[in-house]
Simulated scan of single mutants.
Amino acid sequence: MADTLQFNLVSPERSLASMQVTEVQIPGSDGDMTAMADHAPTITTLRPGVLKVSGPEGASEYVVTGGFAEIGDGGISVLAENAVAKADMDQATLKGMIDAATDTFAKAQEAKSDGVDAAAKTLADTVAIGDALGISVN
Score class of each variant (00 low, 15 high):
residue 41 P to C: 04
residue 79 L to K: 05
residue 40 A to I: 15
residue 53 V to E: 07
residue 61 E to H: 06
residue 64 V to I: 07
residue 13 E to Y: 00
residue 129 I to K: 06
residue 5 L to V: 10
residue 132 A to T: 14
residue 116 V to L: 07
residue 44 T to N: 01
residue 96 G to R: 09
residue 57 E to R: 12
residue 7 F to W: 01
residue 49 G to K: 03
residue 52 K to R: 14
residue 127 V to C: 06
residue 3 D to Q: 13
residue 81 E to Q: 11
residue 84 V to P: 01
residue 16 L to N: 02
residue 43 I to G: 06
residue 114 D to Y: 04
residue 46 L to V: 09
residue 125 D to P: 07
residue 99 D to W: 09
residue 128 A to Q: 13
residue 106 A to Y: 11
residue 73 D to A: 12
residue 6 Q to N: 12
residue 113 S to P: 06
residue 120 A to Y: 02
residue 119 A to Y: 08
residue 10 V to I: 15
residue 91 Q to A: 12
residue 21 V to R: 06
residue 17 A to Q: 12
residue 12 P to D: 03
residue 13 E to R: 05
residue 82 N to M: 11
residue 97 M to A: 01
residue 102 T to Q: 15
residue 59 A to I: 09
residue 70 E to Q: 14
residue 18 S to I: 02
residue 7 F to S: 11
residue 56 P to Y: 00
residue 45 T to K: 13
residue 120 A to T: 03
residue 4 T to P: 04
residue 80 A to R: 08
residue 6 Q to H: 13
residue 41 P to Q: 07
residue 45 T to R: 13
residue 84 V to I: 13
residue 127 V to K: 15
residue 36 M to I: 11
residue 53 V to P: 10
residue 131 D to C: 01
residue 97 M to S: 04
residue 67 G to M: 05
residue 36 M to C: 05
residue 84 V to M: 04
residue 25 Q to S: 13
residue 122 T to A: 15
residue 31 G to E: 04
residue 35 A to F: 14
residue 51 L to A: 09
residue 72 G to T: 05
residue 135 I to Y: 02
residue 17 A to E: 14
residue 55 G to Y: 10
residue 2 A to R: 08
residue 46 L to T: 05
residue 70 E to V: 07
residue 23 E to G: 03
residue 79 L to A: 14
residue 70 E to F: 00
residue 10 V to C: 03
residue 60 S to N: 14
residue 137 V to W: 07
residue 104 T to M: 08
residue 103 D to K: 14
residue 123 L to P: 03
residue 28 G to W: 04
residue 69 A to H: 09
residue 135 I to V: 03
residue 91 Q to D: 13
residue 5 L to C: 06
residue 32 D to Y: 10
residue 47 R to P: 06
residue 94 L to V: 04
residue 68 F to E: 07
residue 90 D to L: 00
residue 129 I to E: 03
residue 6 Q to G: 05
residue 12 P to S: 02
residue 41 P to Y: 02
residue 47 R to T: 14
residue 111 A to E: 08
residue 118 A to K: 11
residue 50 V to T: 14
residue 107 K to A: 09
residue 81 E to Y: 00
residue 20 Q to Y: 00
residue 57 E to A: 15
residue 25 Q to W: 12
residue 130 G to M: 07
residue 134 G to T: 11
residue 98 I to G: 10
residue 7 F to C: 04
residue 48 P to G: 11
residue 7 F to D: 05
residue 117 D to M: 15
residue 11 S to N: 10
residue 136 S to L: 08
residue 74 G to P: 06
residue 130 G to A: 04
residue 89 M to Q: 03
residue 30 D to A: 12
residue 47 R to G: 08
residue 37 A to I: 05
residue 88 D to W: 01
residue 122 T to M: 13
residue 42 T to P: 06
residue 117 D to T: 12
residue 104 T to H: 10
residue 35 A to P: 08
residue 38 D to G: 05
residue 79 L to Y: 01
residue 35 A to M: 13
residue 22 T to R: 09
residue 28 G to Q: 11
